[in-house]
């Protein structure tokens, strides 16, 4: 794994990244896939909630919020 692969939860606000892999399994994995989070999908970290967690991301035109634990299961490459 190259060093510029990071969990989505570490992506700074305002930055974009490409999805590389999803490391969770089962239902949660399928839900993420259903949102269109397949390999090479571009996501953008839009903003944090007042308490810092969850964070809202732009995914294929929709705005989706993930908790830190869930976002860390998505590995991305910052662009």
């Amino acid at each position: 794994m190259s060093s510029n692969i990071i969990p989505l939860s570490s992506l700074p606000i305002g930055k974009k990244a490409r999805v590389k892999s999803i490391i969770t399994n089962g239902t949660q994995r399928r839900r993420l896939l259903d949102l269109g989070l397949i390999t090479d999908t571009v996501v953008e970290a839009l903003q944090k909630s007042p308490a810092g967690d969850p964070v809202a991301y732009q995914i294929r035109g929709a705005v989706i919020a993930f908790r830190t634990e869930d976002a860390s299961g998505i590995l991305v490459e910052a662009i």
């Binding site: 839900r31 919020a65 993930f66 908790r67 634990e69």
Partner: peptide, 10 residues
């Protein structure tokens, strides 16, 4: 807590 996905619709 279990994981969840929250959509912020337009």
């Amino acid at each position: 807590p279990s994981s969840f996905i929250l959509e912020l619709p337009p």
